[in-house]
């Protein structure tokens, strides 16, 4: 399935919806969306992967690189994952310990917002 990326704002939080497959060829689009979404100060991002059907290591690299940049600016990048195969990928790679991962979007947004309000 073709990758479809949409971005929207929920108050201070930017939510990026990712539907379809992220691989070597489509990952640059995710990277672009993440860069654009991380414009806030601090950047508060939620990437909703509940409609993502496939991810490979390139996608992980893009997400991880974005996470590093966002952490440097005291922001947060939370993920929403409802599918076991996507969740499994994070478990295998240990990235479930690096990314805050939530099973519902409102929870992810709430946590991201809370993170933002803790910042000075």
């Amino acid at each position: 399935m073709e990758l479809q990326i949409g971005a929207r704002t929920e108050g201070t939080v930017t939510v990026i919806d990712v539907a379809g497959e992220i691989d070597l060829y489509t990952a640059p689009r995710l990277e672009e969306a993440l860069t654009r979404g991380a414009a806030g100060a601090p950047p508060l991002l939620v990437v909703n992967l509940s409609k993502t059907t496939y991810m490979d290591s390139t996608a992980l690299r893009v997400l991880t690189a974005a996470l590093k940049r966002i952490h440097e600016r005291d922001g947060t990048l939370a993920l929403v994952s409802t599918q076991s195969k996507i969740g499994k990928l994070f478990t295998i790679t240990g990235l479930d310990q690096v990314f805050p991962i939530y099973s519902t979007e409102p929870e992810a947004i709430e946590k991201a917002r809370a993170h933002g309000s803790r910042q000075p």
Binding site: L60, T64, I92, T93, G94, L95, Q97, V98
Partner: peptide, 14 residues
């Protein structure tokens, strides 16, 4: 054999 552990090169403190 699935002991937990992060990818190499992500977090120096992992």
């Amino acid at each position: 054999l699935d002991a937990p552990g992060l990818l190499l090169g992500v977090d120096p403190a992992a």
